[in-house]
Simulated scan of single mutants.
Amino acid sequence: MIAAAAENNALGKDNDLLWHLPDDFKRFKKLTSGHKIIMGRKTYESFPKPLPNRTHIIITRDKNYTVNHDECIVVHSIDESIALVDNEIAFIIGGGEIYKLAERKSDKIELTRVHGTFEDADTFFPEIDENYWMLTKQEFHPTDDKHKLSFTYLTYEKKETVLKNL
C-alpha cells in the first residue's frame, strides 16, 4: 500500500488531496512507475487521465462500469484485483475503503505521514496495527519553499515477514 495521510489519518476531502507536496508526488511516481496500481473507482476518477507507465486496476461494485483506456482494467473485488498480480510488485493507492480491504492482504506500507491534522477530511487511512506491522524505515522532510507542511516517509512491513528474514 502507498499513501499520504495526516497525523489523524486524513487522506482527502471531496475526492481530492488536502495538501500539495511535490517531493511526495515524485516519490509516488518513482515507486509506482512500471507497476500495477490498484484503486477504487473514485480514486481513478480523481485523475485527469490515467497515470503514465502504470497498469490501473480499478475496483467498483458497478457491474456496468467501463473505462476506455488500454492501461485500465475494471474488476469488482479486492480479491479479483490481487489475482491480476502475478509474482510482481503492485501498489494499492486508495481510497480509504480500498485501503481497509487491502490491509491484511498487503506486505508493505509506504506511508507519507503529513505533520498536521485535517478535521474536515472525509476519507481516512486505516489505523496501523503495530501488532501486525513493524516500522522498518523513516525519513523526515522539513518544510521549505515548496512544502508548507513537514512530513516523514515511513516504511512498514508485516511483522511475520520481517521476523522471518532475521
Rank of each mutant, 00 (worst) to 15 (best):
G94C: 08
H69S: 14
I58W: 03
N53G: 03
D62P: 11
I57H: 06
V85W: 03
E97R: 11
H35T: 12
M39Q: 13
G94V: 03
I37G: 07
Y65K: 01
G95T: 09
K63H: 06
H76K: 02
M39V: 09
N64T: 14
I92S: 06
V75L: 01
T66M: 08
T43E: 07
V85F: 07
N53Y: 14
K100F: 04
K36I: 00
I92M: 09
E71L: 01
K42F: 03
T55W: 01
K49G: 01
D79S: 01
N68V: 02
E71F: 00
D62V: 01
I59Q: 03
M39Y: 10
K100E: 14
K49M: 04
D62M: 03
R61K: 13
D79H: 00
K105G: 01
T55S: 07
R104Q: 15
K100S: 13
Y65N: 05
I58K: 03
I93T: 11
D86K: 15
G95I: 04
T66H: 12
F47D: 02
H76W: 00
E80I: 00
M39N: 07
T60V: 04
K49F: 05
E103R: 10
A83H: 10
A90H: 12
K63N: 10
L101H: 13
H35L: 03
D70Q: 14
L84R: 13
L84G: 01
F91Y: 15
A90T: 04
I93D: 06
R54C: 08
A102Q: 05
V85T: 11
H35Y: 07
N87P: 00
P52Y: 06
R104H: 13
T55K: 15
V67L: 06
I58R: 02
K100Q: 15
T55D: 11
R41K: 15
G94F: 09
S46R: 12
E71R: 04
I98C: 07
A102N: 04
I93P: 00
G95S: 11
I78S: 12
H56T: 07
K100I: 07
T55G: 02
I73G: 06
S46P: 01
R54S: 09
K36R: 14
L51Q: 09
I38C: 04
I82R: 06
P52D: 11
E97W: 02
I78W: 10
P52C: 06
P48V: 06
G94K: 11
K36M: 10
Y44S: 08
I38Y: 10
D70P: 14
A83S: 15
L51I: 07
L101S: 08
F91C: 04
C72E: 05
N53V: 02
S81G: 14
E88S: 13
S77N: 07
E103K: 12
K63T: 10
